[in-house]
Nucleic acid binder design. Structure first.
Lengths: 169, 169
DNA sequence: GGTGAAAGATAGTCACA
DNA sequence: TGTGACTATCTTTCACC
């Protein structure tokens, strides 16, 4: 059972959960694939008039279901086609060194995503670089100066076969 | 030297490379972070009037630098907060089994991204699930019926510390 | 929650420089 | 390539249901 299928004792409880109905979910799915759809077009697709659709979308933005609107850029065309997953082991495992690592990583442009993971390594980075030379420079000069790092392991992407930017719910 | 810094012998050559100037790059950076910026607002930021900005953005869309416009959704709020990286080794390595695998993977909603990688495994999947139970179901029932898979290994994300949706160029 | 109309802003076109 | 004006369309508001 998902949270939007739960039953609530009071209206207040329901309100605090900011429950989404099927129309809200439909709007999120539509905008998650194509945010250029106009309020008018959305209204037709969900069988409503523009006004309530406008209110719903505004509410979904305010409540944070929609985090932002972006143009999805073509990394290859922009000469940033090399994707590398970089696994990282920290030197130690105290809280401070973790914070230090994250704060350093946030500043590095090549790092597009960073995850704290289970298993042999502590963090997994998704890195975008122009080419091998650029990636080498990234490892030596950028990661090289992050002192909290113990060891790294690079997994190179040979081809990207699927990339949906949003969850498919 | 990046391709937009190259010099060209002829205008035709230049055209075929669809070279981007600084204004184009600025527009891509702006829209990559916030596609709700109006043509008017963009024009002010790049010191132009709306008309040429409109033409430039339209050209960037047509030439594929902008692939699409999307609303970035909050996976946690939508109860899809569990992220798992699933490494996959195929049974064999002929071309057909690779195609078969990719075609099966494309159909699975939980798989948000799929990469053909170097190293011990053949593919790396980024999976979004509601919870462990859902992930277990995904592994047994969805991956379980992809016959081309030899073995898998799951790396669970404990926290996402960075996620820029686009490249930072 | 939803409808429909009205006003204000934006996108998109075009003649001209 | 860029400017400035023009029109069509869309967003956003609001009184009413």
């Amino acid at each position: 059972m998902y949270f939007w299928e739960m039953s609530f004792d009071t209206e207040k409880e329901k309100y605090s959960m900011e429950v989404l109905d099927d129309t809200d979910l439909a709007l999120l799915r539509l905008l998650g694939n194509n945010s250029k759809l106009t309020i008018k077009e959305l209204a037709i697709k969900v069988n409503l008039t523009p006004s309530p659709v406008f209110e719903r979308v505004k509410r979904l933005e305010e409540q944070g279901y929609i985090k932002k609107y972006i143009a999805v850029l073509d990394a290859e065309k922009l000469n940033f086609g090399l994707i590398v997953f970089c696994s990282i082991r920290l030197k130690h495992h105290d809280k401070n060194i973790g914070y230090e690592f994250v704060s350093d990583i946030l500043k590095i442009d090549e790092v597009v995503e960073c995850y704290n993971i289970s298993g042999d390594y502590d963090f997994l980075l998704k890195v975008h670089a122009r080419d091998m030379k650029h990636y080498q420079d990234f490892v030596f000069n950028k990661l090289g100066s992050v002192t909290s790092i113990g060891s790294t392991q690079s997994t190179f992407v040979m081809s990207e076969t699927k990339h949906s930017c949003n969850i498919n719910f």
